[in-house]
Design a binder for these strands. Structure first.
Lengths: 122, 122
DNA sequence: AAGCTATTTCAAAGCTATTTGAAACCACAA
DNA sequence: TTGTGGTTTCAAATAGCTTTGAAATAGCTT
């Protein structure tokens, strides 16, 4: 069925898994993959990673984040919206202030990355 | 020192943590944040997430990945290089073939995302 | 060496993400 | 209701990522 040359070291294992089609068929559903991508995109900029960690240590209003980083409000607001889209942070209103804090997922991500991600070789 | 209005619900906690400067000073180092960003970027495209999961199930040469997805070689090669830059996959040469497989970090990421990332509300 | 296959690299094109400053919005106080 | 502070939204400009096909590289076989 797989009319393709396959290196010996792989052919056997691959056939045991149903060939290319078997692998393709066992991949996570597109919805699941989309969710992962959304989270990853939210973390794909150093500004946002910093903000997530900061909020993990202490929920803050936008003005504090702005004071802490020196960025413009509109810039901070944009990055917060990306973090929100990824489901990593959310906000509650308190008087005039919007206080951002990490979601459950945001906290798990912060904990996990703090411990796990490191430059690594092959 | 923090000459800024701060909502009451936060002022106390924040001062206990050394104020804005205290939080900023406890953030992970730039190198660490850069490493996280690199991993996140690698996962920020559905093609790459799919490829990582596929390789997690079965190490494969590029021609198999191409056969499985229908993408052009140059496209697959580009995405593999981004995954490699993020430290999520690496390759061994076998005759004419390059066989890609997940690194340790790649495997941990695949396991973790499979279980953890999901669309979530506030 | 020549020819073949597997893969990467390159540059141009198209597309998406980010930054910026100005304007709009919203909750509260006067 | 008008004013004020905190925040978001918008549009234009910029920067960065992804796709494409063609050309280059690298290992095998003859």
């Amino acid at each position: 069925m797989d009319a393709i040359e396959i290196p010996d070291s792989i052919r056997c294992d691959l056939e045991g898994k149903g060939g290319i089609a078997g692998i393709a068929g066992s991949l996570p559903a597109d919805r699941k993959i989309g969710a992962i991508v959304l989270v990853a995109r939210a973390l794909s900029d150093p500004v946002r990673v910093k903000v997530l960690f900061a909020l993990f240590m202490q929920p803050m209003c936008v003005c504090l984040l702005v004071a802490m980083t020196g960025y413009a409000y509109s810039k901070m607001s944009y990055h917060l919206s990306v973090l929100k889209d990824g489901g990593l942070v959310c906000a509650r209103q308190e008087g005039n202030y919007l206080i951002y804090y990490p979601t459950d997922l945001g906290r798990r991500v912060a904990l996990w990355t703090r411990v796990t991600a490191h430059p690594n070789r092959c």
